[in-house]
């Protein structure tokens, strides 16, 4: 499914030429999930999305949760990603193809969203925020918001530091080295 959609999208994007630099772009993020010394540890649920200047969710990038639990029980705690749930999750039919994924262990996780695969690159020029929200069962919750300007030309490299449930979060727009 992926390759076909990908090439079709890419062709469509190339033909429109809007917000299009010559080489394909990608958004690379690293999300640090800190190792915590607690009696009962569960991997956090993490949502990654893009908000517009009115703080409306305009693109879901990733939602990491217990996707594989039987009877969709993993969805029970999605509401604890409070802002994501409110702005997007509650109106989605879970799982979301290409967005839902399993939880990750403590460590630094690199995720790349490529032009042609992610709808992010179709957004009109403007001010946006890259948002990461993490919520841990029997634990805390933290949200990081990285504002950025998107025009398809300037490629910002930004980062922010979490304090409890998230470590360093980086946000980098770059040309796709494989394009």
């Amino acid at each position: 499914m992926k390759t076909k959609t990908q090439s079709a999208l890419k062709a469509a994007l190339l033909s429109t030429g809007c917000l299009q630099s010559t080489a394909a772009l990608q958004l690379e993020t690293t999300i640090e999930i800190p190792r915590l010394s607690v009696a009962e540890y569960h991997r956090p649920y993490v949502a990654v999305w893009i908000e517009d200047s009115g703080r409306k969710a305009v693109e879901n990038l990733s939602v990491l949760y217990d996707v594989k639990m039987s009877n969709d029980e993993g969805e029970t705690w999605l509401k604890d990603l409070r802002q994501w749930w409110r702005k997007s999750g509650r109106s989605q039919d879970m799982p979301i193809d290409g967005v839902s994924g399993p939880t990750r262990p403590p460590g630094i996780h690199r995720i790349v969203y490529r032009q042609g695969e992610s709808g992010f690159f179709n957004l009109p020029a403007g001010n946006y925020a890259f948002v990461v929200e993490a919520s841990r069962e029997v634990g805390g919750r933290e949200m990081i918001r990285i504002p950025f300007e998107w025009d398809g030309q300037n490629l910002p490299e930004l980062s922010a530091q979490g304090s409890r449930e998230l470590g360093t979060v980086t946000f980098k727009l770059q040309t796709n080295p494989e394009s």
Binding site: N71, E75, T76, L78, W85, G89, R90
Partner: peptide
């Protein structure tokens, strides 16, 4: 007050 999923 707020629930996600379908069976609670």
């Amino acid at each position: 007050h707020v629930l996600s999923g379908t069976d609670h």
